[in-house]
Nucleic acid binder design. Sequence first.
DNA 1: CCTCAATATGATAATCGTTCTCGGATTGAA
DNA 2: TTCAATCCGAGAACGATTATCATATTGAGG
Lengths: 132, 132
Amino acid sequence: MRGHVGARRRNTWQRAAVLQAISQAPCHITAEELHDRLRRTRPIGLATVYRALDAFVRDGVLEPAHVGDGKVRYGLAARHHDHLVCLHCGAWEALKACLVPRLPRRLAPGFKVTGHQVEVYGYCARCQAATA
Amino acid sequence: MRGHVGARRRNTWQRAAVLQAISQAPCHITAEELHDRLRRTRPIGLATVYRALDAFVRDGVLEPAHVGDGKVRYGLAARHHDHLVCLHCGAWEALKACLVPRLPRRLAPGFKVTGHQVEVYGYCARCQAATA
DNA sequence: CCTCAATATGATAATCGTTCTCGGATTGAA
DNA sequence: TTCAATCCGAGAACGATTATCATATTGAGG
Ligand SMILES: [Mn+2]
Ligand SMILES: [Mn+2]
Ligand SMILES: [Zn+2]
Ligand SMILES: [Zn+2]
């Protein structure tokens, strides 16, 4: 056989484009948003976007964020930040700073920590006014 | 009209059963797991379980948790805790203590904080061994 | 205790984000 | 240049959650 080590990762313009688009986004974005933006320049498959995102998450380059609307959002791990989420209207916004700046590398025996994500729940100003 | 204030919440055995089942669970559970357990005692609709969970989250009694497998899990807000999530196999486990014990009630102007959730990402012992 | 308008339930269909399939295109070590 | 390992793209499949809507229940007022 030619190559025998396996599990090598190849370089494709699709993966480079995904990473570049995410690095230009101000906050976490969904796979579909990413797909729409990338398609304006060059045709690319949605499945390819999903596969690239998964690979980057496994590599520790991207971090997923869950804001509770059923969509996973992705952002650069290097620009880590957390989010506020309104339990009433679902609106969400980025927090300026990380709430857990110093995370112990080992929280449980044998578990290797690579990142984290915090969602703070509550009610936004508008929904507080509407409920009052 | 008889009643005119509106938005009153009624008491049903379904909602009581949902809350009781969750309080007996050691960690966060999904709507489907809950539905399966409750059905062993008395017939109950899955949609009803989902509605009860949403209502309790809005009331601040339950907190949702996202471990990245596409399913939302629910647990008592009074027994708040965070989770470790393996990026390779998806396994997750509860952390003993909360990583953000004192959360500022106001992180952003006008936003009322009611709770939070932390997901710590990394690789479990088994997957580290498999990847090494 | 009755009434009955407001709510809740449950069976099922519909939604929709994500994953899977598979034939064809790319990549890159040798 | 070769070619096996990988990756891509289009579309089907999947699965968790939500929407429908006819029927049942709740509970304040009388
Ligand atoms: Mn963000
Ligand atoms: Mn838990
Ligand atoms: Zn809101
Ligand atoms: Zn693992």
